[in-house]
């Protein structure tokens, strides 16, 4: 009985990071959801008048704050996942499990920043224009 090498060791390792891989999409997905919500509701309000645009505007400003809070939370979690303070490393050039782990945190953190900027840019018309002009 010789012990065979575990045929699924790579897969096993990968599965452990699968959740991290999903996680890096959460912040951009929040941005996308906020984008669709803003465009759809403002279009409905301005074309059909229901819901009234003042209500839509307030609701979407609240939705913007909620989206930013979600993205901030995701960003904070990914920052800890990246852990540049603890490891002393900003980049992770090697394909080791540890480097892969921190790299996914790093990527998620940067995506959270750009998603936050995206949400703010999409919400600017709500603040500056306000109505259907």
């Amino acid at each position: 009985m010789t012990q065979e090498p575990h045929p699924h060791s790579d897969k096993h390792e990968f599965r452990a990071e699968a959740l991290s891989l999903w996680r890096i999409t959460f912040a951009p997905a929040t941005w996308a959801l906020h984008f669709v919500l803003c465009y759809a509701l403002v279009s409905l309000s301005c074309i059909h008048g229901t819901p009234p645009v003042a209500i839509t505007r307030s609701a979407l400003i609240l939705a913007t704050l909620a989206a930013l809070a979600v993205i901030a939370l995701l960003g904070w979690r990914s920052y800890r996942h990246w852990a540049p303070g603890r490891t002393g490393r900003l980049t992770h050039p090697y394909g080791t499990p540890e480097h892969r782990h921190h790299f996914l945190g790093h990527a998620a953190f940067l995506l959270a920043i750009i998603s936050a900027i995206g949400v703010v840019f999409v919400a600017l018309p709500l603040l500056v224009i306000g109505g259907c002009q």
Binding site: I117, V120, F121, L124, P125, V128, I129, G131, Q133
Partner: peptide, 20 residues
């Protein structure tokens, strides 16, 4: 770039309703 684009976007948005 984020600051400059943000400022230009805000300014552009204040001009946008003028055409109506």
């Amino acid at each position: 770039p984020v600051t400059v684009l943000g400022a230009l976007l805000t300014w552009g948005l204040t001009i946008l309703p003028d055409h109506r």
